[in-house]
Each structure stands twice: as structure tokens, then as C-alpha cells.
Computed example of a mutant assay.
Amino acid sequence: MTPRRGDGPHAPTFTERARRQQLIECTIDLISTRGYPATSLSAIAERAGLSKAAVLYHFASKDNLTKAALDQVMGEFSAYVTERLARAAGPREAVIAYVRAMIGYQQANRRHVRVITEMLLDDHGGTKLKTPSSHDTNGRWQALAALLIEGQEAGVLREFNPQTLALAIGGAIDGVIAHWLVHPDLDLDAAAAELETFTLNAIELRD
């Protein structure tokens, strides 16, 4: 059985696309519940009710499959944030929409947060995926820094170093989410409101 390697000249059939999506969902479930190291091809195949050979037909390796799962998670995350930014009335509102969206998506998609944590943030003896954003914190919060710069250029935000403040706000978001993952009884809605106040106090013009 020859593994498929992307669409190429022979695009996957509807059934093949559905099977690939099933395997990605099984991978997300396993990483979020068992962790990345325990998510083997055999475990994925068992969860999907397929043979390991069938999994390899669609994805040539565990790395390819787990990367596809991560790409889907990050793509949905990005689309969620982008959609809410598009509704913002101005630069100041866009910054707050960003903070709210970062918390809101993770609150609604706990298993996706686990995938991101397992594959990008946790160290598994070198087995985690090496992506450009793995430990580049400046890159992770570049979009927020861009929003802050836009607000400064529009004259609605005070003068500050946007990269430094983006890292500070981003670190606060990460801290809240990390605590929530361990202590799910945390009132994440209240925490989001506090983060909004924190952000406004940091960015707004002062008399």
C-alpha cells in the first residue's frame, strides 16, 4: 500500500479526505488526553478502528499526522481570533478583542489547548515538533505588537515599547490559561475581565 503524500496530481477522494480528517480528530483526542509521547500510530489506528497500514496510507509517519493535527488546531485558533478582530470598531477595541479572543478560544477548546501545550510548549526529550513559533515568544505575540503599533500611530494609545508590552500581555494570558488547565475551577470569564482591565491600564492614554 503506497502512502499518499499530499494532493499532487491525484487529489484525494471525498472518502480519503474524510478518513484523513477522522485520523486528525483521533490524534487530537489522544494528544489531549494521553500526551504527545503516548500518541503512537498504533494508538491512533486503534482509536480510529483501522490498521496501522491504513493510517500510513494517509500519513507517511507519526510526525506528518501530528503536524497535520497541530496545523488544524492552529488554523482554527487563528481564524477565531481573526474573525473577532474584524468586528473591532478601532485599534483600542482591536487590542481588547484580541485578548478576549485568546482567552475565549482556549476556554471553548480545552483539548486544543492541550495539543498546543504538548506539541509546542512542553519538552519531551527532543520529540516535540520544531516549528518557527516553538520558543520564539516575540514571534508568538507579533500580531498583538502590530495591533499596539497601529493604536499608537492612530494616536489612541500611549507611548510604550509595543514588543515589550505584547510580551507582558501575552505572558499574562499564558499564565492564566496554564493555571486554568491545572485548576479548571478557575473562573475564566472573571479572569478575562481582569486581563482586559490590566491591558487597558497598560495601553490607554493618560492625563
Results as ranks from 00 to 15, higher is better:
residue 25 E to Y: 02
residue 81 V to H: 05
residue 82 T to S: 13
residue 16 E to W: 08
residue 145 A to G: 09
residue 39 T to V: 04
residue 183 H to I: 08
residue 106 Q to A: 12
residue 76 E to D: 15
residue 90 G to A: 10
residue 65 L to T: 02
residue 57 Y to G: 01
residue 116 I to M: 13
residue 22 Q to H: 09
residue 39 T to S: 02
residue 11 A to C: 09
residue 24 I to N: 01
residue 182 V to N: 12
residue 7 D to R: 15
residue 180 W to D: 09
residue 97 A to F: 07
residue 142 Q to E: 14
residue 177 I to Q: 11
residue 177 I to V: 15
residue 174 D to Y: 05
residue 112 H to C: 09
residue 93 E to Q: 15
residue 61 S to C: 07
residue 14 F to I: 13
residue 177 I to A: 11
residue 171 G to T: 09
residue 24 I to M: 05
residue 93 E to V: 07
residue 43 A to R: 08
residue 23 L to T: 03
residue 51 S to W: 05
residue 62 K to N: 05
residue 15 T to R: 14
residue 8 G to D: 14
residue 138 N to T: 13
residue 152 Q to K: 09
residue 145 A to L: 07
residue 55 V to R: 05
residue 154 A to C: 03
residue 90 G to K: 06
residue 133 S to D: 15
residue 108 A to C: 06
residue 59 F to E: 03
residue 162 P to I: 04
residue 18 A to D: 06
residue 152 Q to M: 13
residue 203 I to R: 04
residue 189 D to M: 12
residue 162 P to M: 02
residue 182 V to E: 14
residue 38 A to R: 13
residue 47 R to V: 00
residue 52 K to I: 08
residue 174 D to L: 06
residue 76 E to C: 10
residue 148 L to A: 02
residue 131 T to Q: 13
residue 28 I to V: 13
residue 14 F to G: 01
residue 138 N to F: 14
residue 43 A to S: 13
residue 28 I to K: 01
residue 92 R to K: 12
residue 101 A to D: 07
residue 181 L to T: 08
residue 47 R to M: 03
residue 125 G to D: 12
residue 97 A to M: 09
residue 38 A to W: 05
residue 129 L to M: 14
residue 36 Y to N: 01
residue 158 R to P: 00
residue 56 L to S: 04
residue 90 G to D: 15
residue 56 L to R: 03
residue 89 A to G: 13
residue 39 T to P: 01
residue 112 H to F: 09
residue 141 W to T: 03
residue 160 F to Y: 04
residue 158 R to Q: 05
residue 144 L to P: 04
residue 126 G to Y: 14
residue 165 L to R: 02
residue 135 H to Q: 11
residue 108 A to R: 15
residue 82 T to L: 11
residue 87 R to I: 07
residue 10 H to S: 07
residue 149 I to Y: 00
residue 202 A to S: 14
residue 105 Y to P: 02
residue 98 Y to S: 03
residue 59 F to N: 02
residue 84 R to E: 11
residue 108 A to N: 11
residue 170 G to L: 04
residue 38 A to L: 11
residue 202 A to F: 02
residue 140 R to W: 05
residue 31 I to M: 04
residue 31 I to C: 01
residue 37 P to C: 06
residue 31 I to E: 01
residue 198 F to M: 15
residue 186 L to K: 02
residue 146 A to K: 08
residue 139 G to Q: 14
residue 174 D to Q: 10
residue 123 D to K: 06
residue 191 A to W: 04
residue 81 V to W: 04
residue 144 L to D: 07
residue 161 N to S: 09
residue 52 K to V: 10
residue 16 E to R: 04
residue 188 L to P: 08
residue 190 A to F: 12
residue 192 A to S: 15
residue 60 A to S: 13
